[in-house]
Amino acid sequence: MAFRSAVITFPGSNCDRDMAVALEQVSGTPAIRVWHGDADLPDGLDFIALPGGFSYGDYLRSGAMAARSPIMQAVIEAAGRGVPVLGVCNGFQVLTEAGLLPGALMRNASQNFVCRTVPLKVENNRSLFTSGYKAGQTVHIPVAHHDGNYFADEATLDRLEGEGRVAFRYAEPVNGSVRDIAGVLNEAGNVLGMMPHPERAIEPAHGGSDGRALFESALKGLVEA
C-alpha cells in the first residue's frame, strides 16, 4: 500500500523539500506538495507534515499567520478525523498557534539562535510517531531555531506529563523550554509537534540517522492499522 503523505508549504517555509525527501526515502512514495493558499487537502492522506522555516517572516508571532491560512482549516479537520500530523520547528509553532497542541513557543531564553545537534530523551515510545524508539532512549537530532522555548502553565504541563504526551525531552539545556520539553502530542496522539528536525537525520550522510525511526514508526502504524 502506498504511503500517501502531504507536505504543506507556506510562504517562508524552508524545510519543506527536506521533509518531502525524508518521507519519500522512508516510504518509497513521493510526498504530495500542498500550497498554503489551497483550501483543500488531497483525498485519502495517511500523513500530513508541516515543515520548518519562517512562514510569513515570523510576522506577529512565529507561526501565527500560517495558523490562520486557508489550508490550516483543512489540516485541523483532518487532524480531528485522526490523520497523523507532524509539525517540525516552525510547523510545531503553527500547530500551537492553530490550537491543535497546547502551549506556546517563545524566544529562546538565551536570545540566541541555536543551531546544533542535540541529545533528546524519548519519553513516550507508545505513540504513532515514536513506536520505533525505545523508552528512555537517547537520540541525536539537529535543532535550528530562535523561538523554541516551550511554555505552558503548570496545570497544562502536569496534564501533559500525566497523559504521556511529552514525546521528547532535551537531555541538555537548549532553549529554556519548561521541563526541557522538545516535543508534545495532542490528546488523541495523532498530532506531534517538535522543535528538533527528524527529517535532517535520515541517513548517515546527514551525520546521523536517528530521525528515521520517527517516519518508520508512522509508516508501520499505517500498515498495521
Binding site: 501565527a64 497546547p102 502551549g103 506556546a104 517563545m106 502553565d153
Partner: peptide, 9 residues
C-alpha cells in the same frame, strides 16, 4: 483573541 494576542502567553 483570535489573532492579535496569543492567549496562552
Amino acid at each position: 483573541r483570535k489573532l492579535l494576542a496569543n492567549m496562552v502567553i
